[in-house]
Computed example of a mutant assay.
Amino acid sequence: MILVCPACHTRFHIEVGALGTHGRKVRCAKCRQVWHAEPPEDAPRELAETPAGYAPPPPAARRAGAGVLAWFGASLCVAALAYAVVYRDDVVRAWPQSAPLFRTANLTLAIDEAVKVEDVAASRMFESGVSVLVVEGAIVNRSNAAAPAPAVRVVLIGEQGRELATELVTIGAVEISAGDRVPFTARMINPPREASTYRISLEAAPT
């Protein structure tokens, strides 16, 4: 924009943004006259300008507001956890991978009561001179509704309950129909000689 000195009428160019939102004092380069120059009415205003009369909240109020938000967020988390615990069977049906989380927390699941491992038998044999342990059985769904198909974990145990080897077996099915039974076979190559027993457990099938 063009400014005109009110004393000597010298004209000179200045950027509108240099005057700010409310104008500022300028000095004539020729006669050294000083006056307050206002930006034109159609000049763009700063979007971040603080409204007149605005005062930021005191630090204590800001801390209180942050505390309320933190309390609200914590309340939502507690409510979500409570819902997941109460309706954990529904959660496991929708998300089978969550089952180990509930079992770790010692929470019983309907699937644990409905789906069982039965008719388990283990035998050692040699195939082409290699020792192989074969564990066979069936997963049975005793409930009246279909259940997510679990994986079968076979753990070989030695003295003092020490776990020596483990094998995870999937049965190739997404779910087991009500009243149905699905066979499984676990083969462990060169099982530890010191293994004296084994343990079978069910867990969510890997995706």
Score class of each variant (00 low, 15 high):
residue 165 A to R: 12
residue 65 G to V: 02
residue 149 A to E: 01
residue 163 E to T: 06
residue 202 L to Q: 02
residue 195 A to R: 12
residue 152 V to W: 01
residue 99 A to N: 01
residue 27 R to A: 08
residue 27 R to N: 12
residue 180 D to I: 06
residue 148 P to C: 11
residue 157 I to M: 13
residue 46 E to Q: 10
residue 17 G to P: 08
residue 104 T to L: 15
residue 5 C to T: 01
residue 64 A to G: 07
residue 71 W to V: 02
residue 151 A to V: 07
residue 79 A to L: 14
residue 120 V to W: 03
residue 180 D to G: 06
residue 162 R to T: 15
residue 146 A to L: 06
residue 65 G to N: 13
residue 146 A to Q: 08
residue 148 P to V: 03
residue 17 G to N: 11
residue 47 L to N: 15
residue 74 A to W: 11
residue 200 I to W: 08
residue 20 G to K: 10
residue 77 C to E: 04
residue 55 A to K: 15
residue 134 V to Q: 03
residue 64 A to N: 09
residue 7 A to Q: 14
residue 55 A to G: 07
residue 82 A to K: 07
residue 152 V to K: 00
residue 89 D to M: 12
residue 148 P to A: 05
residue 175 E to I: 03
residue 31 C to P: 12
residue 73 G to E: 09
residue 50 T to V: 15
residue 48 A to N: 14
residue 106 N to S: 10
residue 67 G to P: 06
residue 2 I to S: 09
residue 201 S to C: 07
residue 202 L to I: 13
residue 74 A to P: 13
residue 90 D to H: 06
residue 200 I to Y: 11
residue 185 T to Y: 00
residue 180 D to L: 11
residue 197 T to L: 03
residue 104 T to E: 12
residue 65 G to T: 05
residue 204 A to Q: 02
residue 9 H to L: 11
residue 69 L to A: 11
residue 126 F to N: 02
residue 123 S to R: 08
residue 155 V to P: 04
residue 22 H to G: 06
residue 61 A to K: 13
residue 207 T to N: 10
residue 74 A to Q: 12
residue 79 A to H: 07
residue 85 V to I: 08
residue 10 T to L: 08
residue 12 F to Y: 10
residue 199 R to N: 07
residue 20 G to P: 07
residue 47 L to D: 15
residue 164 L to N: 09
residue 117 V to G: 02
residue 150 P to K: 00
residue 144 N to M: 06
residue 136 E to F: 10
residue 102 F to V: 04
residue 127 E to H: 03
residue 92 V to T: 04
residue 207 T to H: 08
residue 79 A to M: 14
residue 96 P to Q: 05
residue 37 A to S: 13
residue 130 V to Y: 03
residue 29 A to W: 12
residue 89 D to W: 04
residue 132 V to Y: 02
residue 149 A to L: 06
residue 80 A to W: 11
residue 57 P to C: 08
residue 5 C to H: 05
residue 193 R to V: 10
residue 87 Y to Q: 04
residue 173 A to D: 15
residue 16 V to T: 14
residue 37 A to Y: 11
residue 124 R to Y: 09
residue 68 V to L: 15
residue 13 H to R: 15
residue 82 A to I: 06
residue 116 K to R: 14
residue 177 S to I: 05
residue 61 A to G: 10
residue 121 A to Y: 10
residue 134 V to Y: 02
residue 207 T to D: 12
residue 124 R to M: 07
residue 103 R to A: 09
residue 83 Y to C: 14
residue 14 I to G: 09
residue 67 G to L: 08
residue 199 R to P: 06
residue 92 V to D: 02
residue 188 M to V: 09
residue 14 I to L: 13
residue 46 E to S: 14
residue 53 G to A: 04
residue 62 R to G: 08
residue 59 P to T: 05
residue 36 H to N: 13
residue 188 M to C: 09
